[in-house]
Every structure is written in structure tokens, then in C-alpha cells.
Design a protein around this nucleic acid. Structure first.
Length: 464
RNA sequence: GGUGGGGUGGCAGAGCGGCUAUGCGCCCGCCUGCAGAGCGGGUAUACAGGGGUUCGAAUCCCCUCCCCACCUCCA
């Protein structure tokens, strides 16, 4: 597949050397609930991963948790809990949110605090090679020793120095030198060959990505706000040490904006995932996050979520119609089945083509809607049957898998109960006892089950 | 100032040299005991502005204007 590479600023073919695509995603710092901005990045990578899996690659996916950091320590102090407890709590919340968003679990979720030893090894290596030095505050990486520093963000170093907004630290050799290890005595802190302290922010990702994926791997990414300085510094550390290319492909996801401003905790304009979930549900949120190309900014606005939900309702409707149609005796060699098969095959190839072209999800979604619409049309004309449903299910499911969309789960018990109520209502309707029939419909609606009356049967769907 | 990315119908958003993108919204119908959902049809004379190149440009080139992100922690 072809993907834009921030390093070259060009769309390039992803070419894993051995059929395995190794992906490292910079995850979240766990000091608060995750918001829609995080969801976008993580969902985009989830879809990338799902697509690659579907294409037959084996994918090794690693995503870190930054669980030691000044913000965590500050937040813990305010709440009167220990920093690691706070981090643990928000990690649990993270899984809660993203499981509900149907994001596949990574192969590893390394935590910074569990890899301090690995970081020490890297820092020692950098010291030995003369890339790092010690001051009274910590151990720093010296960027002047790194000839190609700035190659990812394409920043001329002189410019950065001139406009440096970072505090001037007289002890550093260069204002752009960054901490590998910061001396500190308070909790949490670890002993190190240079003194007790905590890791700098960037070293954890170098240590953990190389540990789980090797010194060179295929894809490294995150939000585009990580390009500088985070990813730039990771490259500097890692490549200075190994003398090898760190990641082949750098993938960065655009920001979610609120009224034109970036959604950020510091701006107090965040929409937590948990509250968005309760209002729109996982599928609408996923469709919303994928409704714009991943490298473009995405505006957070209720009308867009509403739109995404409307799209999902169409998809969901088609899925339930198909499921019910499976029980309708098939008309052998049905012309409609052939037509629908042609429509869905065509849609599928456009879908895959779009995904292959730098993850063009808006176009992919548009092509998915073609067979959805066709199914709904046949359903409205009461023309669906088992053979038709069979003709489209597989391809449709492939597309839904890649986008990570799925309709609500219905347990056997729930299914039986719903169908019993539907049967009762049908009988009441046959006797024209509409008030009682409507009561049943209302009861079901209250629990998120919608009924669709067809000529001689009623299709129910559980809203997801 | 530097580095990137953009400006497409009421809104969102593909297209990147010739073929209706698509969706939401809105209007009118159909279906229905009613309702919702769905379906059909219609609506938008769309491509920031100005010059080129071309038989033909939203798509290529030049100029101008405007927007956003990053350059500090940040997905």
C-alpha cells in the first residue's frame, strides 16, 4: 500500500522486508481521560492496521503508555494519590474507552516505568559514543554531534535556536539539547549510573520501540504535533546509537480542532471519549474520525457527529435487513442476487483502491455506501432473500471489519425476548389492537430496538 | 520569521487533465393503521481571485489574497 511519509514528504509504498509490518504508535500520557483528538489518531492507526491485516500482512503493533511525567505527578499531587496509582487508573479508563470504540488491542502496551533499565542501556550507549553529557540537572543529548538533526521536521537548526522559546539553561551545550535523564529525588524516581532521577520524555519511545520491534521497523507515528520535538529527538537518539535507519515510514495524523483551535487539555476544549460515546455511540465516532482524510484537520462539531450517526443508521439498517433476509427462502439463480453481487464487488474494489492510496477513508466510506443503499432499496421493495443476502455479506463484512464498524451485539436471550415481543405485536396488529401493539413498539424503542414493518413481516434492529 | 498542509455546492468531503463522487441538510412524493426507519425524485448553475498552457483545467504553470498546524507539554 502507499502511505505518505513525513520524512520524505512523499507518498511511498510500504515494503516490509519479510511480510511483517511493525508499527509503533506513540500513545497517551495517562493523567486524564482520553478525548476525541486521541481517538482520531488511534482509530486511524487501528484502520491502517486492520487494512494491512486484511491485505494479508502480519502486523506487529506496539503502543506505549507514558506513565511517568511531570503532568502525572502534578495531577496526582492535586488529587492526593500516588503518581503510579493515578496512571494506573487512567490506563484502565483508556482500555475502557478504546475497547468500546472497537479498537483492536495492540500486541504490546509497554509502559515507561517498566522499561527504565532499557532506557539506561540506551543512555549508556549514547554516553559511550560521546552523544550525551551530564549537567547538575541531568543527562542531555548533544544535538551538535548529530549531523542530520532536524531532518524529520525539516527545521534549520539555526532558526530553532534563534526563536528558541525554551528556557535558557546555561549548563546545556546547546539550547536544543534535550534531557535523556532528569535528576530527581521525589517519587517516582529510580537509581541510575548518573544519579537518581526520572527518564526524559523521548527516550522511552526509543527504548520500547527498539525492544519490541527491532532497531529498524516499518512504521512509526502519532499525532502531527509529535513531529517536533518528540519524533525528531527519538530519531536523533536512536540513529546516533545504532547508526541505522530508525523507522522507514513516519505517519502523522492531523489534529481535531474545535472552532478552529486544536482540541487540547490545556485549552479546556476537550470532548472526552466517554461522553462522546454515550451521545453518539462507537460507530458514529469512528465514521466521524474517518470522514476526513487523516492528514487534514478535522473540525469537532455536533452536526458532523450527527451526520456520521445518520450514515451509520443506514449501514446498520442494511445489516439487520440482510440478517433477517437470511431466513427468507432463496430464489435460486435470482437476478437480483447477481445484480447485488456486481454492485458490491465493484464497491469493494473501489474501497480497497481508496484504502491503498494513502488511506483515503472518505472515498472508501463513500464506496461502501453504494451497496448499503442498494440493499436498503431492495429491502424497501421487500425483495431480499437468503441468496441475495449471501451474495453481499462477505464483502460487506470485509469492509466493515477494515473500518472497525460493527452493529450492536445481541445475546441469544435478548434475541429470543425481542422476537417474542415482535410476534406478540404482530398478532395484536392483525387484530387491529393498535394501542397495545404501539406500546410494545415503545417498550422496545426505549431499550434501543427499532422495528421496521414490511409487508408480511417485521424486521427489528438493535441500535449500536 | 521558519517548516508543512490547505482554500470544491447551505455543511462535510472525494476527485488532481475530458466521464453524475458521496453523504448530511432542504423540498416533493411513495410505503404505513399510525409513527419511525427506509425508498424514489428534486434542490445546489460548486471548484479563493487573476493570468497563462491545452482541442479541453477544480485538476498543470505563474502571480495575488485568505485559512490552519507545528516551531513549548501535547494524539
Amino acid at each position: 500500500m502507499r502511505l505518505y511519509n513525513t520524512m520524505s514528504r512523499e507518498v511511498e509504498e510500504v515494503r516490509p522486508s519479510d511480510g511483517t509490518v511493525r508499527i509503533y504508535l506513540c500513545g497517551v500520557t495517562v493523567y486524564d481521560y482520553s478525548h476525541i483528538g486521541h481517538a482520531r489518531t488511534i482509530i486511524v492507526f487501528d484502520v491502517l492496521r486492520r487494512y494491512l491485516i486484511h491485505r494479508g500482512y502480519s502486523v506487529k503493533f506496539v503502543q506505549n503508555f507514558t506513565d511517568v511525567d511531570d503532568k502525572i505527578i502534578r495531577a496526582a499531587r492535586e488529587k492526593g494519590v500516588r503518581p503510579l496509582e493515578l496512571a494506573e487508573y487512567f490506563i484502565e479508563q483508556y482500555f475502557n474507552d478504546f475497547d468500546r470504540l472497537n479498537v483492536l488491542r495492540a500486541d504490546h502496551y509497554p509502559r515507561a516505568t517498566e522499561h527504565v533499565g532499557d532506557m539506561h542501556a540506551l543512555i549508556k550507549g549514547l554516553m559511550d559514543k560521546g552523544y550525551a553529557y551530564t549537567t547538575s540537572k541531568g543527562v542531555y543529548f548533544s544535538i551538535v554531534r548529530d549531523a542530520d538533526y532536524g531532518k524529520l521536521s525539516k527545521k534549520p537548526i539555526d532558526e530553532l535556536k534563534a526563536g528558541a522559546r525554551v528556557e535558557v539553561d546555561e549548563e546545556k551545550l546547546d539550547p536544543l539539547d534535550f534531557a535523556l535523564w532528569k535528576f530527581a529525588e521525589d517519587e517516582p524516581s529510580w537509581d541510575s549510573p548518573w544519579g537518581r532521577g526520572r527518564p526524559g520524555w523521548h527516550i522511552e519511545c526509543s527504548a520500547m520501540s527498539m525492544k519490541y520491534l527491532g532497531e529498524t521497523f516499518e512504521i512509526h507515528g502519532g499525532g502531527e504535533d509529535l513531529i517536533f520535538p518528540h519524533h525528531e529527538n527519538e530519531i536523533a537518539q536512536s540513529e546516533s546509537l545504532t547508526c541505522k535507519e530508525f523507522a522507514r515510514h513516519w505517519v502523522h495524523v492531523g489534529m481535531v480542532n474545535v472552532k478552529g483551535e486544536k482540541m487540547a487539555k490545556s485549552l479546556k476544549n476537550i470532548e472526552p471519549i466517554r461522553s462522546a460515546l454515550s451521545r453518539w455511540g462507537p460507530n458514529a465516532i469512528r465514521l466521524y474520525c474517518l470522514s476526513a482524510h487523516y492528514r487534514k484537520p478535522l473540525e469537532y462539531d455536533e452536526s458532523l457527529l450527527r451526520q456520521a450517526l445518520a450514515v451509520w443508521r443506514d449501514v446498520e439498517n442494511a445489516l439487520f435487513e440482510l440478517e433477517h433476509a437470511m431466513q427468507v427462502p432463496a430464489d435460486e439463480g435470482s437476478r437480483v442476487a447477481d445484480e447485488l453481487r456486481a454492485i458490491v464487488d465493484d464497491s469493494f474494489s473501489t474501497f480497497m483502491e481508496s484504502m491503498d492510496d494513502d488511506l483515503d477513508t472518505p472515498r472508501a466510506i463513500a464506496s461502501l455506501l453504494v451497496p448499503i443503499r442498494a440493499v436498503n432499496r431492495y429491502a424497501a421493495e421487500d425483495m431480499l432473500d437468503g441468496s441475495i443476502a449471501g451474495a453481499v455479506m462477505k464483502r460487506l463484512n470485509d469492509m466493515l471489519f477494515i473500518l472497525g464498524l460493527r452493529r450492536a451485539d445481541v445475546s441469544m436471550e435478548e434475541r429470543a425476548r425481542i422476537e417474542e415481543m415482535v410476534r406478540r405485536r404482530s398478532m395484536l396488529r392483525a387484530e387491529k389492537r393498535y394501542r397495545e401493539a404501539d406500546e410494545i413498539r415503545e417498550m422496545l424503542r426505549a431499550e434501543g430496538v427499532e422495528l421496521v414493518d414490511h409487508r408480511d413481516r417485521t424486521v427489528w434492529k438493535k441500535l449500536g
